[in-house]
Design a protein around this nucleic acid. Structure first.
Lengths: 183, 183
DNA sequence: CGACTTTTTGAGTATACACTCCATTTTGGA
DNA sequence: TCCAAAATGGAGTGTATACTCAAAAAGTCG
């Protein structure tokens, strides 16, 4: 039998509640009770849809990472500045999600699928950065570009981490300085 | 008033047990029961020495960082290379604790005292990096040195994070490149 | 020894958590 | 309208957690 509409609506409410709680207070805030309370649902309904709390959180993480994926539409035409600006905008606009990424990636002990997903995303971004560097400097070797891209993205990630811990930190300024060493 | 020797030995046993458990299984493995079992001590003894489990964990983290500090006396004689090498050594030698370090910093959501503590530590490190830069280049302005130090440490932090997610990543190589670019 | 202080014990408390069970209600197709 | 499958309510279970407390033991020193 196909699923009933009301069940699908409940699933949506649970996912949305989970997403909000993760953004507001991190992994610790997303308890089963908190999720059910915010979704306006009882525990029994939750487990009628999800086999475990972890599965719901994984689904939120999957969806969020999907949204953040580099836009394939602009592939091959971005400059390094474009990419850095996009990164800065993402970190500032989606700072709550950035913290969840860090938490999930670093605390993923039982299930490291999130860490792997995060890594794939990172590698893809390194490739785009390296490609932009190669377009700007034809004399650059492939592996040199990849190494430079790793260092630059490391700096951006580290500065973003710094900013998550202290919102008074001027992330955009430092990020642009980090990028300027390759201009 | 002075502490008895047996109490100091107990503290050592607890710290050592905590250190082992953190290294073996991360934050989740270091429960109070696990720590006390391994130390051969009862919960009451633990709380006779430490005000909370968190304090014991923080002390382990502090000690680990202290071990690789190139200039614990803050004498102001370390070079930037010394500091970068110390950072690299910490991340590689104490990789398990480096992961804990990230976990602690990023998981301080409800109780931000941990995040603040790590931020203070970070700021102090930035000051030492900036001071080393100033000693190497007298023409550098104070705020310029601080900004450069923030960018370099951001890169080191980001690359360390990258390495925690993927142990095949050549952290030392990229860290040294970052130091040569941003130093 | 004897007085005093520190340390240890270990059962006990309070609480939070993910998850279950199943009677009841709702849904949507035939 | 009927009815089987799907969804729900909500009390209840089991477990793990950090932490407490008062009495007993052991260390320290004159």
């Amino acid at each position: 039998m196909a699923r009933y509409q009301v069940g699908i609506r409940t699933e949506t409410k649970i996912i949305e509640a989970t997403r909000q709680l993760l953004a507001e207070g991190g992994l610790d805030a997303a308890t089963l009770k908190a999720i059910c309370d915010r979704a306006g649902v009882q525990a029994g309904s939750f487990y009628n849809i999800f086999p475990s709390k972890e599965q719901a959180i994984m689904q939120v993480a999957r969806d969020a990472i999907q949204v953040v994926d580099p836009d394939p539409e602009h592939a091959g035409t971005d400059t390094l500045d474009d990419l850095v600006d996009a990164y800065i905008r993402f970190v500032i606009d989606q700072s709550d999600l950035a913290r969840i990424y860090l938490q999930l990636a670093v605390s993923g002990s039982s299930d490291d699928s999130v860490a792997r997903r995060f890594l794939r995303h990172h590698v893809r971004r390194v490739e785009r950065f390296a490609a932009a560097m190669l377009r700007a400097d034809g004399a650059l070797a492939d592996d040199e570009a990849t190494t430079k891209a790793e260092v630059l993205l490391g700096a951006l990630d580290g500065l973003a981490f710094r900013w998550v811990l202290d919102r008074t930190f001027d992330f955009a300024k430092h990020a642009r300085i980090a990028a300027s060493h390759y201009g």
